[in-house]
């Protein structure tokens, strides 16, 4: 019981830091996945007087991923009120060409402006519809969401850091007596602080394992998965290898830093 109490305080502080880091990672991934999804569905419609080859479009702006020529048949069918085939073919030749441009990623408003400028540098292009109004709203919502999550993560980190600093004082008080006594019997600094470092490393490992278990549960939770399905994205909630080692690294660095600060701040008892 005593031993659990010794460990619990740091483990709780570490878990809250690791949790907020992982939540931020998941939100980042969700936004990226959502942006990718938007990019897949988002396109710019271009009207040109002359036919433009796909390769020419691709050379205009690196943002353009692929080009789809829109068939004029729909328009002609609507206009077709008893025209013969010869006139229809003639009309087809005089109609401007319509192209749908798919992009490599979901663009920022600035990228849209540059794209428009680059496209208009081609004299054949007469009109561009980029649906920028809708696009702007979606993009701004994403940026706002990301900003809110970032602020949330920063606030959680600050609060947890304050918790860790408080913990540092408690640890300093708790461990300084033992370190002083060992010092009176000639223990070198590394031996005096060995218990402290062992404790902090064990706590870092325990908190990483607990976070791993929490996120493993979350990543298989039906409710959570349903939320991602609702917005039609697939997100890796916890990458067993990369995320685990990243969080383990963070918790080890934090707890070793904490132990080092205690050792450096330790004043020998007279």
């Amino acid at each position: 019981m005593k031993s659990i109490k010794n460990h619990l305080s740091l483990i709780v502080a570490l878990i809250s830091i690791l949790f907020s880091i992982q939540v931020f990672i998941v939100v980042e991934r969700s936004i990226d996945a959502y942006k990718e999804n938007l990019a897949k569905n988002y396109s710019v419609v271009v009207v040109s007087e002359k036919r433009i080859a796909n390769s020419e479009f691709l050379s205009i702006d690196g943002l353009i991923n692929r080009v789809e020529e829109l068939s004029p048949d729909n328009i002609i069918n609507r206009l077709n009120t008893g025209m013969d085939q010869k006139n229809i073919n003639l009309l087809k030749l005089t109609l401007p060409k319509f192209y749908k441009l798919y992009l490599t990623k979901f663009p920022t408003p600035k990228e849209i402006t540059t794209l428009r400028k680059n496209l208009f540098s081609n004299p054949s292009i007469s009109k561009i519809e980029d649906f920028s109004n809708n696009h702007d709203i979606t993009y701004k919502l994403l940026v706002l969401f990301k900003g809110v999550i970032l602020v949330f993560a920063i606030v959680v980190s600050i609060v947890t850091m304050l918790l860790i600093l408080k913990e540092l004082r408690i640890w300093q008080f708790k461990h300084s007596e033992r370190m002083s006594i060992m010092g009176l019997f000639g223990a070198p600094t590394w031996l005096r602080s060995a218990v402290l470092f062992r404790l902090s490393i064990v706590d870092a490992i325990i908190s990483s394992i607990l976070i791993y278990l929490i996120f493993m549960y979350i990543s298989t939770n039906r409710f959570v998965l349903q939320q991602f399905d609702n917005i039609n994205i697939k997100v890796v909630i916890f990458d067993t290898l990369n995320d685990f080692f990243l969080l383990l690294g963070v918790s080890l660095v934090l707890s070793i830093l904490l132990a080092t600060m205690i050792v450096l701040g330790h004043k020998e008892e007279v």
Binding site: G183, L184, F185, G186, A187, P188
Partner: peptide
């Protein structure tokens, strides 16, 4: 510090 530790290792306090 190291000499003091050495001495203290041979003392019983």
């Amino acid at each position: 510090k190291s000499k003091l530790n050495f001495l203290r290792r041979h003392l019983g306090i």
